Simulated assay, not measured.
Amino acid sequence: MTSPNYSDPSRAATYATPEQAQSDQKPYMQPQIQYVPQPNMQQGGPVPFGQQSGGQIYIMPNNYIDPSIAQIRDWLPWSITNIFVGWCLLGFLPLIFSLICRSRKTSNDASGARTMSTLALIFNILVTLAGLAAWIGLIIALVAINRATSNVTCYPYC
Rank of each mutant, 00 (worst) to 15 (best):
M41E: 15
G112C: 08
I83H: 03
I72M: 01
S103D: 15
Q38R: 14
Q30D: 06
Y15E: 04
S68V: 08
A148V: 08
I80W: 10
Y155D: 08
P37R: 01
F123G: 02
R104T: 05
L126H: 06
F123P: 02
M29N: 03
T81P: 03
A113S: 13
P18L: 02
L121G: 07
Q71W: 00
T81H: 03
A113M: 04
W135L: 13
P46V: 05
N124H: 01
I96Q: 08
I145Q: 13
Q51H: 08
L142D: 06
P27D: 01
N124C: 14
Q52F: 13
P67S: 04
R114W: 10
S117W: 06
T17V: 04
Y58H: 11
L138A: 13
D8V: 03
V47P: 08
A134I: 08
I125V: 15
P48E: 04
Y35I: 00
V152T: 14
A141Q: 09
A120L: 10
T149P: 02
Y157L: 07
S23Y: 05
G55V: 01
V152E: 13
T153P: 01
V127S: 03
N5E: 12
S7R: 11
A120Q: 08
G55M: 02
A16K: 15
P4W: 00
Y28W: 06
I65P: 10
S117N: 07
P9T: 03
M60N: 13
A141R: 09
V143Y: 12
I145V: 14
I72H: 02
S68W: 01
A21D: 15
L132C: 14
S3N: 15
P9A: 05
R11F: 08
P61Q: 02
P77K: 00
P4Y: 00
C158I: 04
G131M: 03
M60E: 12
S7E: 13
Q30S: 05
N82A: 05
S68R: 15
P156K: 02
R114S: 15
Q52L: 10
T17P: 11
K105V: 03
I122G: 08
N5Q: 11
P18T: 05
I83P: 07
I72C: 02
I57K: 12
Q71K: 15
V127N: 06
R102E: 13
A70E: 10
G54A: 06
P46Q: 13
T17K: 12
F123W: 13
V143E: 07
F97T: 04
N5F: 04
Y64K: 00
I65M: 14
I59H: 11
A130I: 14
P61R: 01
Y35L: 03
N62H: 04
Q52N: 11
L90M: 14
T149R: 13
M1P: 15
V143C: 12
I83V: 14
I145H: 09
P4G: 01
M116Q: 14
A120I: 09
M60I: 10
G45Y: 12
G112M: 09
I57H: 08
F49C: 02
A141P: 01
K105P: 11
I122C: 10
D8F: 02
P94Q: 03
I80R: 10
S103H: 10
S23T: 11
Q22G: 04
